[in-house]
Amino acid sequence: MMKTMIRTGALAIAGAGFAVAALAADLTGAGATFPYPIYSKWADAYKKETGVGLNYQSIGSGAGIKQIQSKTVVFGATDAPLKADQLDKDGLVQWPMVMGAIVPVVNLDGVKPGELTLDGATLADIYLGKVTKWDAPAIAKLNPAVKLPAADIAVVRRSDGSGTTFNFTDYLAKVSPDWQSKVGAGTAVEWPVGVGAKGNEGVAGNVAQTKNAIGYVEYAYAKQNNLTHAALVNAAGKTVQPTMAAFQAAAANADWAKAPGYRVILTNQPGEASWPITAATFILMHKKPADKAAAAEALKFFAWSFEKGGKMAEELDYIPMPASVVTLVKATWDKDIASK
């Protein structure tokens, strides 16, 4: 009995050893949770084609940055891009990989998706606690045709630090001086009002359950949960609906070439068709990687994803990078990353 147990144990350990050896050949990455679904979808397809797998830990942007700084992974992923001086200090290269959009979602009786319109200043005032009723003049003025209840607005926001919050608060800070001075932008901020829910799914669930609630989620979550999204007034003063075309317009209008480290935050972009809260998610790699072969493999994976991953991204409601940006990024790889 004992002997069998020992033998099985030894086998199990040997098996685990093999498993570790097999994983070691995989690419390792860590960071943002927001792009995790698309990275894993790309990785699955890529593995089928090439046999090279990806071990991506979606542990959050902050932790991803730490992991790449300490060189425990081949690449890091972050929603909030690093500043150029930070990149230089750590010897990192940064580029945008894929984009997403953030939409305000509401739960109002009789209001269908896209019927309610909000502008940035009003959205900021709601999240500041200055606009507390749905029939407040600020909202009524934007929605003459919508029947608004005389109810309190139940504000829902993220409780965990997140790239979604970073981009959402960045937008509010850009459109509302009051928000800029009182709260500011960050992955976790000091929310004046509202309840905090964990993750996009937490906010989506909360808004779905609470009458007269408002929240903000990644577009995919709004779509998959059939939430009522609101239209937004963009920087050009036009009311836009959250559509793939509007997200792409925002990305196309951004000036990627001039931003060091591609540090472009896609909120409140100019252009009549631009959705105002669009966001890119970024990859970080070392300029002088310790393991050159692994770095080269990772770049192959990213090049493949840029080329063949666009459709998969759209299926999951992400927005592929425009071709012009991909060309720029590839030039950066050749110039800055010593992978050969």
Binding site: I59, G62, D160, G161, A188, G196
Partner: peptide
């Protein structure tokens, strides 16, 4: 009213903190 506890605050914010 909503509130937080020590462990909930840590669980919520630790991953994206630095």
């Amino acid at each position: 009213s909503p509130g937080t506890t020590i462990s909930a605050a840590i669980a919520s914010e630790f991953a994206e903190s630095s």
